[in-house]
């Protein structure tokens, strides 16, 4: 991996810069009819996509920022209220709690699943016979729907008949009410998030491990280094760019957790598991306060933008 390819945004920027030079125009010559035809074909090919992305992404983003400064309940026209939504939001204990919950959820799911993922990736990279089976097992939660998976966990966490409490019981640990206990609900949600998030991180780590030069390990073996030593002195440093990439996309993903909250807890009990996304959903589609929902989603966007910018800073300094 070259330095520009290890970060999503930077990779994209680099791709933008390398706009294929071969097809760039050769100075300002008269354009032949064949060339004109090509250009027209190019436009024809891209127009449907431009319209689609423009209508369903560009306009909505602009509208979100606009609506965040309005009071808008769908039935009357939006009323411009400057920063009232933002002021109200930051005085709203529930929204503040949702920020706290989101950060807490991210703080636990991301490192835990990253740690498991890197260990599994390294072990899988040894090339065992059952390797394909292992990879499938760890990756399966990623391809199946979050709603379906959350449904299964809802059953596992069932306080009366659930598998988890049964297993704890056999170990002599008293069961918990999990999702209905304000103290345990968020940890339970975090457990599901971490469990589901391992697969994708593992894949990226496996890809990165493939790129480590085998000769480094051979040289270390000749010097008599142990496997553990090799892991910490070769593998860990060589995985740094991948770790960084995984870290960023995981944070962005974790901040947008929604489906499992909807199924598992509905944000409860007592708002113990409500997330920023869930508050956006509630404001917009339960209270029909489109302006407020937009303002909340702008704050969510600001968080993600902040993470992205910081990450760019850090990579730049490293280069």
């Amino acid at each position: 991996m070259t330095t520009t390819e290890r970060h999503p945004i930077r990779g994209a920027e680099a791709a933008a810069k390398q706009v294929s030079p071969s097809t760039a125009p050769k100075k300002r010559k008269r354009i032949s009819t064949a060339e004109k035809k090509r250009r027209r074909a190019g436009w024809l090919m891209i127009t449907p996509s431009v319209i689609h992305v423009g209508l369903w992404t560009l306009i909505p983003v602009i509208a979100t920022f606009y609506l965040s400064f309005t009071d808008y309940g769908i039935f009357e026209a939006p009323k411009w209220i400057w920063f009232d939504n933002y002021v109200e939001m930051f005085n709203d204990a529930v929204f503040m709690q949702s920020i706290g919950n989101t950060v807490w959820y991210t703080f636990w799911t991301v490192p835990v699943s990253m740690a498991v993922a890197v260990v599994v990736a390294v072990l899988l990279n040894q090339g065992f016979k059952l390797q394909k089976f292992y990879r499938t097992a760890f990756f399966l939660p990623q391809v199946t729907a979050t709603v379906a998976i959350a449904m299964v966990w809802l059953w596992i966490f069932n306080p009366q008949y659930g598998l988890l409490n049964a297993m704890l019981e056999t170990l002599g640990i008293p069961g918990q009410a999990w999702l209905v206990d304000p103290q345990w609900a968020l940890p339970a949600v975090i457990l599901v998030g971490a469990w589901q998030g391992i697969g994708i991180k593992m894949l990226i780590y496996i890809a990165a491990l493939q790129n480590i030069d085998e000769s480094l390990y051979e040289a270390a073996s000749l010097d008599g280094a142990s496997s553990i030593r090799k892991f910490f002195s070769i593998t860990v440093p060589m995985l740094k760019p991948a770790t960084f990439f995984v870290f960023i996309i995981s944070i962005i993903g974790a901040f947008q957790v929604f489906d499992q909250i909807y199924v598992l807890t509905d944000g409860g009990p007592a708002n113990a598991t409500t997330m920023m996304t869930y508050e956006v959903y509630r404001s917009a589609f339960q209270e029909f306060r489109m302006g407020m929902a937009s303002a909340q989603s702008v704050v969510l966007f600001a968080f993600l933008l902040f993470v992205t910018l910081i990450s760019r800073r850090v990579t730049k300094e490293e280069d």
Binding site: W56, T277, V280, A284, M290, L300
Partner: peptide, 13 residues
């Protein structure tokens, strides 16, 4: 652009 930054206007559209 994250999903949640466009979902409200998409619904309105």
């Amino acid at each position: 652009i994250p999903t949640y930054t466009k979902i409200v206007p998409q619904f309105l559209l």
